[in-house]
Every structure is written in structure tokens, then in C-alpha cells.
Design a protein around this nucleic acid. Structure first.
Length: 263
DNA sequence: GAAAATGTTGGAAG
DNA sequence: CCTTCCAACATTTT
């Protein structure tokens, strides 16, 4: 595809679209690149950019939706080659935003976990300055970009860290383990085309397969794959949280004896 | 049939 | 700065 541009944007659900410009994109807004930053899909244009956030149930198709799913289409981008990108969104939390400058609009985001500059050392520096608990921090996009509820739970499980542990209280060993877990998890999930819990689809219109690899997410009450304890559920920062009380002790190091400290 | 839970984020309020 | 609650919305599960 060469010299593609956005010809027109049709908005079916007004709240799903916003623009920093007085008008919607004009004909000839050439598309330069397509990339991801955190949970945003970024379409850089010759002038400005289009940001897409899928939130909970957003999905994109280049295929025209069937009549019965048309009611969930909130925005459609019509390209110069006469193809159309359909933004479906059952819960209507997703957003499409036309901005002047993508970097400015996304300037609040924390580092990319997969960037080479995101080292364990850098992670340690970032954590040391923080007061809160580790799980809400992992979900905080201004702290680190791109981690959602599933990967936060999985990363903490993989690293053997209780979700309520104070962020600044992690040992350097735990930080290294968590850093590794986050990066491995995201890489593996991308390799498996993502995690489809309900209706997520990737660019080829297919479901992801990483859900088959999840160890704790969605498995409350089932057994821990590692130690066979019953996985427990907590609500932390309004988000359901699944963890293994044995492998992720609230005190002590992962895998260590809970008998440290007192007595 | 009502209540709670679901992958997210931003805003308000303490 | 940090945490908590809520709102946006539709569907499924309890």
C-alpha cells in the first residue's frame, strides 16, 4: 500500500471520537506509519495523528461487519484505497482521537516495558520513588505503559510477589525477577497474538491464543500450577486480582519460608 | 430477576 | 502524591 490516506471518518457514536482540530481530517491526510505506544494504536499522518484505544471491548476490522454486529461499530475510517477500518466496541469505552502531535498527546505515558532502555536498574530506580502497592503501580500507565490487569497478575505470579507488597519494599532480586517476568510475558503474548478473553482479535481478524498460557488470571478457586494451593481473589484498586497465597506471600521472598522477621 | 463481575481510564474527593 | 469510589456501557455469570 503506498501513499494511503484517510479520506473520511464516519462517527456512529459521538463520544467515541474527539478531535484537537476544528474539523475532521481533510482528504489527503497521508498515513506515514502505524505503531503502538502503550495501549494506544498510533497512526502517524503527514499532519497530526490518529490515536486508537480499544479499552475493554474495542476491536478493529478491515472487513465490513455483518448486519447484526453493525450496531457495535462506533467509528469508521475510510481510506483513499476505498478500504475501511471499522472500530467495533460493544461497551463503548474505546476512543479514537485526532491529535496534532502524537508524542505530546502520549507524553504522560511511562516507559515501554520492551524498550531496551527499560532495564532492571531503571525499574529499580522507578520503584524506589513510589509509595503505593505494586499491583496498582503496574497498572498505572504513567508509571509503565501497556500493562493491563491480566499481565499485572501474571507477572506478579511469575515473580512470586504478592500484589499488595509496597512497591518500594521489593528486594533488588525481586525487582530483577519482576522485570524479567514483565518482559517475557509481553513478548510471549505478542508472539501468541495476544490474549482473547472475550472478543479481542488481532490484525488478521483472529483471536489470540495466549489465554491458554495464563497461570492465575481467571483461575480463582482453582489450583496453583506450581504448588497446587487454591488461588485466591482480592479487589485491589477496584480490579479483580488473582494470586497464589503460597507462591506470593505477603511477607518474605518468593519460595522462601514465611517464618522470617518476627520471633 | 437482581447483583456482581468483565480486558480500561480519567476524574472527583478524601 | 496516594488511595478510593465512581462513571462510562453491554453482556454474562452468580
Amino acid at each position: 500500500m503506498k501513499e494511503a490516506s484517510i479520506r473520511e471518518i464516519t462517527v456512529f457514536w459521538e463520544k467515541a471520537f474527539s478531535s484537537e482540530l476544528p474539523d475532521r481530517p481533510r482528504p489527503g491526510s497521508q498515513i506515514l506509519t502505524l505503531r503502538r505506544r502503550g495501549k494506544y494504536i498510533v497512526m502517524d499522518l503527514a499532519e497530526g495523528a490518529v490515536l486508537i484505544h480499544l479499552r475493554m471491548t474495542g476491536r478493529l476490522t478491515l472487513q465490513e461487519p455483518a448486519v447484526e454486529e453493525k450496531k457495535y461499530v462506533t467509528v469508521a475510517l475510510h481510506f483513499s484505497d476505498h478500504r475501511t477500518l471499522w472500530f467495533h466496541d460493544m461497551r463503548k469505552f474505546g476512543r479514537v482521537c485526532w491529535v496534532r502531535n502524537a508524542n505530546t498527546a502520549l507524553g504522560h505515558l511511562g516507559p515501554e516495558p520492551l524498550a531496551s532502555t527499560f532495564t532492571a536498574r531503571k525499574f529499580a530506580e522507578m520503584l524506589g520513588e513510589r509509595r503505593g502497592r505494586i499491583k496498582p503501580l503496574l497498572l498505572n500507565q504513567t508509571f509503565l505503559a501497556g500493562i493491563g490487569n491480566i499481565y499485572a497478575d501474571e507477572a506478579l505470579y511469575m515473580a512470586g510477589i504478592h500484589p499488595l507488597r509496597p512497591a518500594s519494599g521489593l528486594s533488588s532480586r525481586e525487582i530483577r525477577t519482576l522485570h524479567r517476568a514483565i518482559r517475557k510475558l509481553l513478548r510471549d503474548s505478542i508472539r501468541h497474538q495476544g490474549t482473547t478473553v472475550l472478543n479481542f482479535i488481532h490484525g488478521d481478524n483472529e483471536r489470540g491464543s495466549f489465554q491458554a498460557k495464563l497461570q492465575v488470571y481467571g483461575r480463582v478457586g482453582k489450583t496453583c500450577p506450581r504448588c497446587k494451593s487454591i488461588l485466591e481473589r482480592l479487589v485491589i484498586a477496584q480490579r479483580g486480582t488473582c494470586f497464589c497465597p503460597q507462591c506470593q506471600p505477603i511477607s518474605g521472598i518468593a519460595g522462601g519460608e514465611p517464618s522470617s522477621g518476627i520471633a
